[in-house]
Amino acid sequence: MSSNYRITYNVDMVFCIDATGSMGGVINMVKNNALHFFNDVTQAMARKNKTIDKLRVRVVAFRDYIADGDDAMLVTDFFSLPEQTADFERCVNSIEAFGGGDDPEDGLEALGYAIRSNWNAEGMKKRQVIVVWTDATTHDLGFGASAPNYPSRMAKTFDELTAWWGDCQNSGYINQNAKRLLLFAPNGPHWNVISDTWDNVIHFPSVAGKGLGEYDYEQIIDSISNTI
């Protein structure tokens, strides 16, 4: 019997980054984490003798449709890593913390974009990981619908967004087995509901204005690599 057979791992990650003014103190850390995720996760996997065959990352930088107009949402396509590392780094480094208006932000719309990503359906073992970094609670979906650039195909209600995420009875826009949602977000609306009711979620609660640095970065990387 030969040992040519090898399990392949394809990983897609979407980074949803709160780019409002209140993130000013921690945005560089978040950007730094995003930029190092590829190396850190692949190294953590390599220590377990696993190799990621295809890894793609996408960025959704979000603010507030009412307060920030055209700057409310930056959405990229997937970058294939390591081939498009330079493009990915340029994109992440261009994100600056400003705007936001009131305290809640449009994080649910960012999550909506992330869930409807063009996920890689190939490979024996897949992971489709969404990582949200924010220090703010969220508006209700559609709070910014009066803005001219508000997306027409966005989920209309939180229930619809929940259906987009799916569950074991009704699959959504993301593979039920492959999906993971990592929240670095306050334990408040609507992140707390997502944390309590959606499946495949790991929530690292942050305190508004205090940044996200209290968690052991190595543990976060382990959380991701161990679920791949």
Partner: peptide, 8 residues
């Protein structure tokens, strides 16, 4: 542990 969610 402060960590929450269905995967913990």
């Amino acid at each position: 542990a402060a960590i929450k969610g269905s995967l913990t």
